[in-house]
Design a protein around this nucleic acid. Structure first.
Lengths: 232, 232
DNA sequence: GCAAAAGTGTTGTACTTACACCCATGG
DNA sequence: CCATGGGTGTAAGTACAACACTTTTGC
């Protein structure tokens, strides 16, 4: 319970939750991490990763806390999706929830931890029904993600600083949920001139191997200063 | 205070406010309605229209309540901007605020009411410092509005079902904060073919007078069904 | 009759789309 | 040697940007 409000008396108090839509990229598909809900009501149903906000943390910090609990990772790229406040949205009690999406590298994900929480990476195309309004949150998060990756170089947060062009294209295709033309995709990337081609190849997915690239942040800063905008 | 939570005990409770960024169009400029804050702390400083959320209302309903209190209007077009939850954002107490923007017709606005609340329409370019993080909310709302009016026909909510093309262009220019080419602007509108030209003219802003147009909603439905997208 | 705003087309440029073949390599 | 995925250029079409003059009418 709160201490007495110094100024704003006689107003209602609410539980606030944060729910995290954790996106990852695996097997050429966009996945998201869901878990069996650990508490009643709807215990053991599929759910987003969530948690309650505490006294001395901001919304962002609350989301980071939840992310850390489920992934043991910090400094994860995260964006707020919005607040959800229908009166009956949570059948357990009146709860206002703020949704965040996060982009993580699945390789860094701790699978032992996953077992502990009964968490699973699910292809976004095969998403089951989730509790409450969580499916709506996912839809909104995906729409926002589509916009974001097309206008800002946030997609690189899915990778551990290097990636191949075929993988990058597969990821865009998974997010946009449509096929892209390989040559046009590469042409647009080349025009922006923000990637460094590395000397090494990924031989994991083909015999020939695909060159690794990395995103050049300094070049991107300069790019912005010239008034240019990232666009894919 | 809340009744005892049936399930989610031992979690913190918070005050939740909604703050409304009320946009209107006047004198070829985008304006927004601000008020003298009626309560301590920072009493009489410039502020957005806000209010606390109550037990049995959704976030959207809370925002509608605030809008009604300050404008006496209902069925106002409204969008959520986001939730603001820094620990010290409100110096009065811990408050999480959810911001909404609304598009209203200034002509319908009740000026008597304005006096009661010491409310004023301010050109967005001449916005004073507002309390707390309200200036940030306005910036975010404007960015969202720019995106929305370019991809959906929401701009027509600024008008009372008819408008002239010069006024429409002035409004876009005010929102985008850049000049537009008159012929290109009209060509794009004409291509979409969503407006009906009326037989009457507005003689208020020129001797010749400009024809009124109205947005044709049925045509827009069909337009969407063909897979087309509004774009300006 | 003139000032002030409304209305109207064309042309060059940049971007987007569509499209097919050769390359490198592990098995 | 062949199957598999990686890598590359060109041409057509579409969308965007730039630009100037005529019309109407209240004063």
């Amino acid at each position: 319970m709160n201490t007495l409000a110094p100024y704003y008396q006689n107003n209602a108090y609410f539980l606030i939750a944060v729910d995290c839509i954790i996106f990852g990229f695996r097997e050429k598909e966009l996945h998201l991490l869901i878990t069996r809900r650990p508490v009643e009501p709807l215990k053991n149903e599929w759910s987003l990763m969530g948690g309650f906000m505490e006294e001395n943390e901001s919304l962002t910090q609350a989301a980071e806390k939840v992310l850390y609990r489920y992934t043991q990772q910090e400094n994860i790229y995260m964006e707020q999706v919005g607040a959800y406040g229908e009166v009956d949205r949570d059948s357990g009690d009146r709860v206002i929830s703020v949704a965040f999406y996060a982009l993580v590298q699945i390789e860094k994900f701790n699978t032992l931890l996953a077992r502990k929480f009964d968490a699973r990476w699910i292809n976004v195309k095969e998403l089951p029904q989730l509790v409450f309004d969580h499916n709506v949150m996912v839809r909104n998060a995906l729409t926002l993600l589509q916009y974001k990756v097309s206008t800002e170089p946030v997609i690189f947060h899915f990778f551990d600083d290097k990636f191949t062009l075929p993988a990058l294209q597969d990821l865009y295709e998974a997010i946009y949920q449509m096929p892209l033309d390989k040559r046009n995709f590469r042409k647009k990337l080349a025009t922006m001139d923000l990637l460094d081609k590395l000397e090494i190849k990924d031989k994991g997915s083909s015999k020939r191997g695909a060159f690794y690239y990395s995103f050049n942040n300094e070049r991107y800063e300069a790019f912005l200063k010239e008034g240019k905008r990232f666009s894919l």
